[in-house]
Structure formats: C-alpha cells, structure tokens
Design a protein around this nucleic acid. Sequence first.
RNA 1: GCACCCGUAGCUCAGUUGGAUAGAGUGUCAGUUUCCGAAGCUGAAGGUCACAGGUUCGAUCCCUGUCGGGUGCACCA
Length: 598
Amino acid sequence: MGRAYNSLIKNSSAGARHARRRICSEPNMTILQLISQRASAALDAVGAAGAPAHVQPASKPEFGDYQINGVMAAAKQLRCNPRELATKVLAVLDLAGIAEKLEIAGPGFINIHLDRQFLADKCQLALTDAHLGVELPTRRRVMVEYSSPNLAKEMHVGHLRSTIIGDALARVMSFLGHEVVRANHVGDWGTQFGMLTAFLVENHQDDAGLALNDLEDFYRKAKIRFDESPEFADRARDYVVRLQGGDEQVLQLWRRFVEVSLAHCQAVYTTLGVGLGREHVHGESAYNDDLPVVVEELTRAGLLTENDGAKVVVLEEFRTQDDKAMGVIVQKKDGGYLYTTTDISAIRYRHATLGLDRVLYVVDARQSQHFQQLFTICRKAGFAGDMQLQHIPFGTMMGDDGKPFKTRSGGTVKLIELLHEAEERAFALVSAKNPDLEEGERRHIAHAVGIGAVKYADLSKSRVSDYIFNWETMLSFEGNTAPYLQYAFTRVQSVFRKAGDYDAAAPIVLEEAAEKQLAVALAQFDDVVLAIESDCYLHGLCQYLYQIATLFSRFYEACPILKSEGALRASRLQLAALTARTLRTGLDLLGIEVLDTM
RNA sequence: GCACCCGUAGCUCAGUUGGAUAGAGUGUCAGUUUCCGAAGCUGAAGGUCACAGGUUCGAUCCCUGUCGGGUGCACCA
C-alpha cells in the first residue's frame, strides 16, 4: 500500500593531458586519496604500518589547506613522543609537486599547504573534462526506490522528501557512471482498492475521470460510505476478493482508478522536475502472483513457523515486549499477505531477474525496523545474494510549530498545491525585484526558483533529522538557499556576457589568496561527490556549493577580472568558468535548475 | 517495558572512523556602491555542545547513568 502511512485508515499522523601527467602516476585521484596514500606510506616508513593517516581539509585557514591527524594516535601506539614522530614522518613524507609547504603544529598535527601549480593543474583538468575531473568508480547496477506513494489518495507533503532525496541520489549515482534503475514502488493493491472500486461503481461509473478529479475527496466519501453502510462494506470486501482472484470486471475498474491516480502523480513529478515516469512504476500489485511462492520458499528454507494460524518468520535478532524472539508475519490466518511479503518478493525479483548490485530504499525513518527485519529475512533465506540492501532513512517534515506539517485546519497538504504555492511565492518575489521582465520570463524564473527553493531546503539539511519547513527562509535570496546559489550562477554568467572572446585553454595562475582559496575548493568537487556514493548524504554537496558561491564572491571582490589584462585576465576567467560549471553541475545533481538571468 | 533517532548561538542548521581557540546562515549592530547584477562584500557581538560521571595526551563525538523530545514494536502499509 505504498510507503507512506495512510492516516485515514490508521488514526495516527502520519587539461589537459600534460596536466594529468604532471600530477601523479595515478590520474584523477582526489586530493584526499592522494594525500592519504602518501601519508600512509610515510607512516609505514617510520614503523607505524597500518596506522590510519586521518587526512582532512584544514579546520582553519591558518592551518593550511589539509591536515594529517593520524600521527598522534600512531605515537600513542608506538609509545613515543608525537612531535618527534611527526618530525620523522615529515622527513619521509613525499608530497613533491603536491604541497608547497609542510609544518608540524600543536601536539603533532602536520599541516599541508597545497602547491599552487598542482591546484592550477587539477582545475585545468576539470575544465576540460566532461565529468569535471571526477574519476568514475567501478560501474554497478544501482536501484533507487523512491517516492512510492499510495495510489488510493493524492500525493501529500509526506511524499516530498523521498521524492526529492531519491531523485538527487539517482542523479548522483548516474553521474558517477552507475547504471541506475529508478523504482516507484507504488501502493496499488490491498483492501482499500476493494472499497474504492466498489464506490466507483456506485457513483460515476461512466465518467471515472471526473469522479476522481479530486482523489482526496473521493477517498473520504468512500470511507464514510464504508463506515456507515454494512451492506457497502460487504460489497467492498467482496470486491477485494474478486480483485485478488483476477475478476476481469473489477480489475478493469481497478486499472481505471490506478491510471487516474498515476496521472495525478505524474503532474507532481513533472512540476518537480523529477525523473520518474510510467516506466518506473512497479507497484505492489506486480508481485501478487509471487507471494505464495515466497511463502513456499521460506518454508523450504526452514524459516517459517505457524502461530495461531498465521505464517511467521521468527527472528532471534528482534525482541518483543516480553523479550521473546519477534515474529514477522508473512501470511495472515485468513490467507492474506502483508507488505513484508511483497517486499521480500521484490527483493527476489531485483536480485534474480534484474541482477542489481545495490538497492537503496529512500523511505521514512519510521520504517527502519521493517527494513532491518526484511533484510535479515532475505539474507537468511538467501534471496539477495551479494546484492547490497540499504535503507536510506529520512526524518519528518515539520511546520513552523515543530509539529508535522499540516494545513491551518490540521488537514494534510496536497503536494501539488504546495508546489504551486512555491511557484506563486517565487513569482511575487521575482516580480518585485525585477518588474521590467516580461511575465512569461518571470513565470519561468519563478518556477526554477520556487521548486529549487523547496528542494534545496530539504536537501541542505541532514536527511536523518526532522526539518522545519519555512517559506521565508527557503525563498530568501540571502544565505544558504537555492535562490542565492541560482543568483550566484547568473552573476558569473553575467561576467562572461561582458567578457567577450577569451582563451578557453588559457593556463590558470594562482597568485592572490582569494584565487587560491577558490581553487582549493573547486579542486575538492570529486571528493564531495564521491562521499555521497557511499553515505548517501546530500547536504554535504549543498554546503560545498554554498562555499563555492561565497568564495567566488570574495574572489570577485578581491581580484578584478574584466579590468585585468592578458594572461591574468584569461586565468581569472578560467576560474570563473570552472566556478560556473561546478555550480551548474552540482545544482543539476540536486535536481535544481540554473538560470542565465533572474 | 524493549528498540532506534534526537538535544550544539535568540532562530534554522553543520561539525568526517575522537583533534588545535566548537563553525555557517539568519537576526542584531557597524562599515562598504572604481570589473558582473548591493539579491553583494567586510567586521563585531552572540556558547555550561541537555545534565552528571567514566575512558585518555586530547571528548560535541566513545561508554554508563539521569532528564527532556520524537518514532517504532504480530495478522495496516
């Protein structure tokens, strides 16, 4: 029945080849990888083999660009003085061509000031590479399961985070060269659909489209009818049986309902600019025929026991209220199946038929226990093989009052209406700032800004915690927001409109502090994106892009570009060009549009 | 009762397998319009990292306990 709770049923809330050669023997290593490798080698050489180097970007500018923190822990293990060990490490540490200055600081930190030519070369390489210099990891088949609404009702704000986070993850995985399979595991099966199809028959059977124009309203009326009329409730139950039994007449009604509901979803996806279409829909109904097979296979694997007529997988790893092994029911005593059964079937399909290497479930944190149980069962039954299964949890979207986001009257907010409000608010802002633009242009900008703001507000916070939804802060042009980043991008574009022709292959020369600081940040793009591949946290990329925008502004204040001449001007334009490409690429990974003017 | 998550500046949030004087934005105050578009930039003030112990050269981070908030826990999804 989809991944979201159904609050009406349950009463809870729900360059350059030469540059490449000069950098190092292994092309395109990230700075972190490169320094870590060299630092580990140095630790090995001084007798601290295997000690982690603990390399990280410097915590403060006065500490240089990167720092090695692992020496102190190694000294502890070797029972020697950390500063003396640091001196020995420094003597053998080979960062030739990478660092221009190394120093020992504090109790035994090694601070690294990167070499300007090294940085310039890395930026130059990024500028000529389609992937901004990111070395692609081994290609894998990665599924991102996200959005997954319940088709019985319209999408509401509860579906927003999964849809936004999942789509960004799919974009990042795809950028990194993986074969990405997007999956929309919609809730299109179950008892509710008996009620809904029965109600459809009673009402506008001839014009389902009209009746289902407002799905929310339709559902509410059906539920009232179900609760008030025992006769209707019986018919609804009969429809469930007929639906699951393959009765063509009921199936036809069901298909009609699903079609209309999916059309509602598609309107949201289109507005949101999310890469989900009909081809990605693989709902719960698709696994229906396999469910008895799942039960058989579990029996064969010796995992199934019967309890009070229900078929149960008992897991010692999970405890009940009275501290007994917890059972997970896969088949009810009336013969019906549960969503765990469907999920098990989906895992079998994804492993055996799709041959995936990794599956990411972008689903509400509240379902974490369900996924732990699901993964445990599949591992024990051998259904997943080596396929990596990961629940990517996220917190709840809250209103200004810190409680789950609702309308003023306490109802659920339709997602499509929220998105339209974002566009309207952005339109008002753009019209106020720039009234001379034609309305069509302002509408276009408002769409990018409004939707971008909603997405960025979500993505820029750590996904695991709840976050507070606030129109004013997300639509502000100041601070760490989408509009600020979009504006920063248009400013760089504006520089190029005035610059005229310039040498796109000109060498980058880093003299001023502001130039170097910007270059260091630009050279970290690969490390930032690769981190997402493993931890699936997107807020690091947001923070990074904001830093790029800020560093560019400082660079722009400190270093004249257009007023400079010759090689200096060309070099600075190169930095501006890489800034623009980094912002555009990064925002694109987040699913946020950039604009040339706004 | 058991399990998981959370508690950091007035507010919204970062803080990497334990590192240096805990950071950013916003708001407040002050300064700044000689290259793009001030929707910018610079600076200041703002902290008992919920609390109490422990581990150690070093703890916002790890361990134990307490308080406070949230979520989940067998025939819904």
